[in-house]
Design a protein around this nucleic acid. Sequence first.
DNA 1: CTGAAAGCGCTTACAG
DNA 2: CTGAAAGCGCTTACAG
Lengths: 339, 339
Amino acid sequence: MVVSIRDVARLAGVSSATVSRVLTHKPHVREEVRQRVLQAVAELGYRPSRVARSLRVRSSQIIGLIISDIQNPFFTALVRAVEDRAYENGYAVFLCNSDENAAKEALYIDLMLSEQVAGVILTPTRETESPCRKLLEANIPVVAVDRRITDLSLDTVVIDNVQAAYELTRHLLEAGHRRIGAILGAPQITTGRERLAGYERALQEWELALDERLVITGSPKEALGYEAANRLLDLPDPPTAIFAGNNLLTMGALRAIDERGLQILQDLSLVGFDDMEWTSMIRPRLTVIAQPTYEIGRMAADLILDRIANPTRSERVIVMKPELRRRESVLDLQITERR
Amino acid sequence: MVVSIRDVARLAGVSSATVSRVLTHKPHVREEVRQRVLQAVAELGYRPSRVARSLRVRSSQIIGLIISDIQNPFFTALVRAVEDRAYENGYAVFLCNSDENAAKEALYIDLMLSEQVAGVILTPTRETESPCRKLLEANIPVVAVDRRITDLSLDTVVIDNVQAAYELTRHLLEAGHRRIGAILGAPQITTGRERLAGYERALQEWELALDERLVITGSPKEALGYEAANRLLDLPDPPTAIFAGNNLLTMGALRAIDERGLQILQDLSLVGFDDMEWTSMIRPRLTVIAQPTYEIGRMAADLILDRIANPTRSERVIVMKPELRRRESVLDLQITERR
DNA sequence: CTGAAAGCGCTTACAG
DNA sequence: CTGAAAGCGCTTACAG
């Protein structure tokens, strides 16, 4: 039915060991024999079983990718980058959605172990006691993306969140804003905590006191962005600008602003993290921190491929630099300044 | 190092055949023995090797998913749906991006064969001579999504594109529009052809002649949407409404409209296919055909799971009904009607 | 440079 | 109801 290595060996008049050597580019095969084997392979349309290989060498040519949710636009470029690099190197990709759920994450990690994947890239759901410890114990390379795992020594690719949030906030301060609302992920999450720190640092530099009513944190989803923006705008002394801590929060804030019939720049300023191409394309007047998501994914993929090829122990932490994309809003902001 | 079925067998005092029977829920195992095995499994933290199983039964518990591009928002809900259903049923998912490239598609199909996947879901890049014929020949179930393969008998999940395009166009006609521009995918692609047909049918029903300058087709990407919208708006007698044939075309048209400082509904109407949640959230005044992408993905997944469980020959074609989402724009449209 | 043989970790007729 | 044995399709020491 399906042609196996033995069929090729028979046709080429060699042993299956020799066929294997040729196909895995091992040395010590006479050129003439090599050609005969290649000929037979072509003739039979032989396609080696990756499954059998995986069982034999105890490792499949598969990279596991566990992200929070592919429906979050932040992750699509990441996934795409990992897949591009993986397939270029002959690896396939298992994609899993953990939904920020540690139990689900643990389940998928068991799957990865059971499938003997070559390496795993994941956006960890928890900073400590991550189930991915099991992977490391099984000597499967792991790369954490977007967030860190604090109690484990492993490769990590993140952006400088403090710096990025600082720049966004400074951008608003320079435009004259003095009451700046912030909607952020809960400080238990690395990203939420770091972005808050950047916001605070900018305020300190301008010698402004932190008004706690202007900072709203929670689960960084669209719903919080909507609700928090409404709460901020309902304050007796509402902010003149809002800083949204990720793409979903930005979406939610936008929805609240739209519903109130407010115009961005005319009525208030909005800046945010843009983890998706679409936000700034549809709303060109937003100033955003553009996360280099594709590059982050590519870094992570290269890192894991390198680890697979060269297993070592040392931990590498790569901090990517996000880019502040000033739209025409820079000017507008100064015009609409209210104080 | 890693615990195998033999270790479990030894600890439970049975053969590995019995362990296998217990774990695969085969009948004919004494309850007492079953308990002993389960006990040993728990004690050792045994995790069966899916790789070994795959080799033995010549089929892995993996579903291949070959889409055009995960960065196209149309596909994210589809991917998510497939993954949800797959993992619920103990299957993992291989995700591949074909980029509408038949050679790449063929490559991934070879990968699927080599990995002995249980089934493949794909958005075909070509209507005829699809490389997925190989899968069918290897008795691997295949489900085509979004587009059809005309020269192969296989399960398919699509939407009624003719009807959807007809409804969108009719919506504009009822609001009084008489010059309606259409930006569509090339008629070589099923979706492009069918959506054009729906547009034409609506015009015919209103006894309007087709103005060829109002219909622009090509590669259905953002760039075409932008360029075509500009061309339409530059006409001496420009359309009062534009129908965009998919999400990317809608994005491009939006960009052109924004650049010209035009306001949707005040200056012209825009309707389109919305394959993403975001468009209508960010631009709430758009009237769109909302493709039930998640449901399409779920249907496809259920279909493939059913085929894996019950291999048969008959071909099933499922036509999903898309939903016309009239925003407040219905009223506005009538107000801004110009004739 | 090449082959015979073992073995990766399962499942499944076959026999009892 | 249970076990011994074969075999899925590869790779890799080992021997020559």
